[in-house]
Amino acid sequence: MAIEKKDVTAIARLAALSVEEEEIGQVAGKLNHILDVLQTMQSVETDGVEPMSHPLDQVQRLREDTVTETNQRDRYQRIAPAAEKGLYLVPQVIEQV
């Protein structure tokens, strides 16, 4: 299951990262080196083993449905790279969801 150059591009796209054309080969090499180590997992029989997502077998705690928050917009937007009229700004999005 070695990672090829086109896989690097696809992964980078999903992760919203850019990889320079000339670096792709090197990145693929390092990722493959890591995946080789991870591959050792395949040698172990795990049929019937329940996947473990959390260290402790606990259940979700619930919060009361009461408003606890107040408007802090100005304070929060002080650290925003681009905000105007209370809105965060990004380059124009063409397609709409």
Partner: peptide
């Protein structure tokens, strides 16, 4: 690098072989 690895092991076609397998080993 870790974001790339993480993205890869969760992506379609690799989830079971990597992510799910690793969750089982965790147990």
């Amino acid at each position: 690098r870790r974001i790339m690895v993480g993205t890869y092991v969760l992506s379609e076609g690799y989830y079971d072989a990597y992510y799910r397998k690793a969750q089982k080993l965790r147990r």
